[in-house]
Design a protein around this nucleic acid. Sequence first.
DNA 1: TTCAATTGTGTTACAGTATAACATTACAAC
DNA 2: GTTGTAATGTTATACTGTAACACAATTGAA
Lengths: 166, 166
Amino acid sequence: MVHGDHGAALPEAFPDKLSTSALAQCAATGRALTTLRREVLAIFAGAPRPLKAYEIVERLSTPSRRVSPISVYRSLDFLIEIGIVHRLATQNAFVARDRDRAQDETLVFMICQCCGDVDEAVLPGMTRSLAATADAHGFRSRGHSIELQGECEDCRSALANPNRRG
Amino acid sequence: MVHGDHGAALPEAFPDKLSTSALAQCAATGRALTTLRREVLAIFAGAPRPLKAYEIVERLSTPSRRVSPISVYRSLDFLIEIGIVHRLATQNAFVARDRDRAQDETLVFMICQCCGDVDEAVLPGMTRSLAATADAHGFRSRGHSIELQGECEDCRSALANPNRRG
DNA sequence: TTCAATTGTGTTACAGTATAACATTACAAC
DNA sequence: GTTGTAATGTTATACTGTAACACAATTGAA
């Protein structure tokens, strides 16, 4: 089962928003959402936090099926290309988001150093601002990575009120 | 050049702007700009591009002196702490810059995928914009990483006019 | 002086991240 | 059926970063 079996059934609750977006992207670009790519996506769909590549390797591997790191990396590269998955460069980790992939949207990731959770935002003026800066330097931008490190609201509350933590 | 000349041929005399900034930061924080840290800084001063940690290891090592990766990483951590060196998360590489380290300045790095050169800029409104976004999400930001990937002016010219390249 | 605390480096070993190179499988188009 | 392309399998390895503990130098104080 390499590619072409776009209708393969998956153990998890499919289709979700992620795979719907992925399928739309594949249809638009003439590429295939293969079994392996679906499986990786399914793992993201069930994960509340960013995933490490080798976590995905572990979760896909069973005693009878050894998924190699490079296969996972290749699937990740694909999902990144179609805009479903984002690499958190500062964390060596990956997240899946189903936002509209309008090319002029600038995603900002806020990464909690305490609990590892990631939130994301779109800065309306950011795209223009970055483009203007790049222009001023003669730089043609083709991609970006914007990540904030800090503490999320929950962790700040917990730190401020250690007695109340659950 | 086993010892005494810092292990690197410098194009400019010491002290340069980088080490001047570093010394000022050390004086302000009561920490030491040791020989190893100076050597790492000197390598940055002579490098036109971002450096990989293991490139620094190689340049510091000689047949009679084996500098270990962890020593280099420790020096890099120190130089990052005092704001002289920045880590390019998307490249697993490091650059030294001698900008004023005003805490409200938001550095943006523009990384040429073609030649590897890095330019940086300060976006005036960015700090406020990011802070407002973080606030809106209850996120307390303590650090950030903003990197653009693309092509620098020189490489764009070269690509547009392949005959003229030199 | 001697002790303890602090800072920084040396040394060894290893953990974690990512890719190269080549073989194989599946499908589509001719 | 042959060829071209896309995707994965397989093996091995390169690259990036850290843990753990020992050693050395400095400082401040009993």
